[in-house]
Write a protein that binds this DNA or RNA. Sequence first.
DNA 1: GTGATAGATGCAAATGCTTTGCATTTGCAT
DNA 2: ATGCAAATGCAAAGCATTTGCATCTATCAC
Lengths: 151, 151
Amino acid sequence: MSKPVEIIDELNLLSEHGVRNTRQRSAILQVLLASDIPLSAERIHEKTKEADADINLSTVYRFVEMLVEKNLATKSFNLEYGRATFELSNPHHRHHLTCTHCGEIVVIRECPLDKLCRALEEDTGFAVIGHRIELFGVCPKCQRELSTEEL
Amino acid sequence: MSKPVEIIDELNLLSEHGVRNTRQRSAILQVLLASDIPLSAERIHEKTKEADADINLSTVYRFVEMLVEKNLATKSFNLEYGRATFELSNPHHRHHLTCTHCGEIVVIRECPLDKLCRALEEDTGFAVIGHRIELFGVCPKCQRELSTEEL
DNA sequence: GTGATAGATGCAAATGCTTTGCATTTGCAT
DNA sequence: ATGCAAATGCAAAGCATTTGCATCTATCAC
């Protein structure tokens, strides 16, 4: 299996950052690129395993943390799930809406905070660097199930 | 020291929820009411100690988790700090802007997401229940310190 | 007030995600 | 091909949080 072009880009990006290109890192990037939702270290580990890459969980933790430090990935914490999650910093800044019952995730493309950030900089003098948004709700399917239970 | 009126309200609110009023819970509420920023369980524990209330850390964890379940408090996770934090669900929904260098926190009163939430409900069919926003930046003081270092 | 009891607390041990130390391996520049 | 700094694997440690259980206590019926 040859590497998708994005991974090569990412790996080049890494070497520009003075970071070595290894089998493990390539596999981890492949997993992250293939996912449009944030993944926990363990989930990344599982997925690399499914792709026949035998990677140590510590390596996953070390590498994703490095990506975060280099601003190539974003870390969040999924409270429901109790784990940190990671996703590549998307060129198109996005957020997610999660169903509190089944965990389904919907991608939100539009970010409503850009304007607020500029306004905050003026008001507070802070240099606003970034933000995280987590949205919660109940997906249509779970709404139907819940209303049935109540009968 | 007599209890502020808000605490009595909160305690009444609790007993309406079928929950006992104890010395420990009163002290924890007092701490939460006095803070306008989210506090970790450990921080709450310290503050109750400062107020001469000897409370076990487990009790803090159990009680704040109960408040969250009853929607009387909100839980978040402070990634920089590596701990969950809690604050009373404010009648006036608010968010915070945190300095990544010194940890200073500024309160944001206006929530920009209400409109987005309504729009999302139409688009996705989700019933949007809530959200968390975390904003990051560098406060004016740290900006000055950082630019000095670079000279 | 008294007693009964479900619920709350304290303590210590367990849990589970994440980090770390160290010996071994490996990318990559020369 | 070689050397070495960086990366990996493994196991042990760290640390916030949870849990089991014995003890205590707020609350309610009397």
